[in-house]
Structure formats: structure tokens, C-alpha cells
Design a protein around this nucleic acid. Structure first.
Lengths: 119, 119
DNA sequence: ATCGTATATCGCCAATATACGATTTTAGAT
DNA sequence: ATCTAAAATCGTATATTGGCGATATACGAT
């Protein structure tokens, strides 16, 4: 990319792309699945469950958190992570409703509204 | 990345990540939105609508097509593209139903089943 | 066969993402 | 204050992605 062209697209389009980008790695899918099955987990517990080093997992958690996909609850030195289901649902909704497939519920927050405008 | 770790994750996880990756660029979100509003369009018409060169748009179309997001219909030299709504709906479903948010319909094809298994 | 138009592919470079060892930061325990 | 454990950040190596000019390919028309 000679020059980054992200500024040539709308903020809503960029936001939606960034959300999708947060899901665009098998490790992050695995983290979401692990958190889903566990309800919540610390970084260390996720490291133990995945074939990746601690800094790498921490990095992936930041990627997910940056787009609002996680609930983060510090418990002393330990940090408890869990899924923000709302954000995930709203992301899906922004695709479904604008594509007229009809079976999604109403969006629940602001970022979903922005995303829906993107497409 | 010293060594690619994609082989350390399940095929379903990789598939889901690749699908998300296809949505992870503002230009591809814009293409989806354009196709949605138009119903169908040729590569050239998309090029005219976006601030990108023809090879770049063609490349993005390949990215979307690789994960099954497009219907491709050649009409002589021209190629007509449109959205595979089914694929997009199934992608969203695989997140929604496994997260237990409940408001998604049943998946309609095989790739959705694979995706649902990922998480 | 040649031309004109539409699309895809190639080749190269710039930019971004991924991975992780080493280090720092944070917080509880002693 | 010091020790320990957990998590985040830094630095750096490597891999992947994005952009586009040049070129190749496909196809209808002449």
C-alpha cells in the first residue's frame, strides 16, 4: 500500500471493517470460543489453553478489546476477561438488517447504529 | 510472525477468521454496500464508484469471492457481481446462535455449520 | 485475424499484522 | 521495602496485506 486509503472511506465503513478485523484471526476466534465456554477467564488461563506465548495472547486480547468485544474486570494483579455479547450481536445485526434478511432484533447501542450506516 | 501458527487452530476456526478477514477492509465494506444498493454491478462500475484503481478493485472482489460472499455471473467480457446474502446471513448466524443471543434463524448451508463449530 | 473493451494476474514496493523474548508495570503477600 | 505472580509494553524479526502500473487474458464486433 503506497498510501493508506482508509481516509477515503466513511468513518462507519472503517469502524465496521475494524470490527471484522478483530475477528480475522484464528487465535482470536479461539479466544472468543474459550471465553464463551468458560464465561470468563484471565489472560494466563487463556495462555494455558492456546499454543501461544503470553505477550501474544495479551496482544490479541487488546485487539478484541479495542473494538469493544470484551468486558474487562481487574481483580488485583489478575484481569478477568469475558465476552461483550451485545457488541457481537450488534455487529451481526448491522449486516443482517441492512441486507434485508429480516431476522435480527433491534440494535442496542450507538456503535451498532454507526455500523448499520456503513452499508 | 516467526512461524505461521494457523495450522495450530481448527479448520472451522480458520474458516471463520478468513470470512471475517474478507470483511476487514473499508473498500470491501463499500463494495458490499454498493452491490447491496445496486443489486448487481460490474467490476468497472464499482471502480467508477470507488477511489481505487481497477486492479485493486478486482483484487478486493477476489477476496470477497474466495469466501463465497459473491455471486459471479459472466456476461461476455463483462462480469456481473452481486451479494450472496445467504453466506452473509450464515456468517452472522454462526456467531449469534453459539453465543446464545437467540434471535437468529436456523443456518441454511454447510459452511455455516462448520463456522458454528468454530466457536 | 485484428481491434476495442472489460477483467484478471503479475511484479514490486509500502504498510500493517503477528509472534515472542526481554522488560516493565501492577498489585497482593510477607 | 522486598518478593512473587500476573499482565502489559517494548523491541525486533518475519509474514501478510494493500495498492497500482504493466501485462495478460477473455470476448464481442468488424
Amino acid at each position: 500500500m503506497t498510501t493508506s486509503k482508509k481516509d477515503l472511506f466513511s468513518a462507519a465503513q472503517v469502524a465496521l471493517a475494524e470490527f471484522a478485523g478483530a475477528l480475522a484471526h484464528p487465535a482470536r476466534i479461539a479466544i472468543i470460543g474459550f471465553l464463551q465456554s468458560r464465561g470468563e477467564a484471565s489472560c494466563g488461563e487463556i495462555v494455558a489453553a492456546l499454543p501461544l506465548a503470553q505477550p501474544t495472547v495479551s496482544q490479541h486480547l487488546q485487539s478484541l478489546n479495542r473494538v469493544g468485544l470484551l468486558h474487562v474486570r481487574p481483580e488485583g494483579a489478575r484481569v478477568s476477561y469475558s465476552i461483550n455479547c451485545e457488541a457481537l450481536r450488534d455487529f451481526c445485526h448491522s449486516f443482517q438488517c441492512t441486507l434485508g434478511t429480516g431476522d435480527a432484533a433491534e440494535p442496542a447501542n450507538r456503535s451498532a447504529q454507526a455500523m448499520a450506516e456503513a452499508i
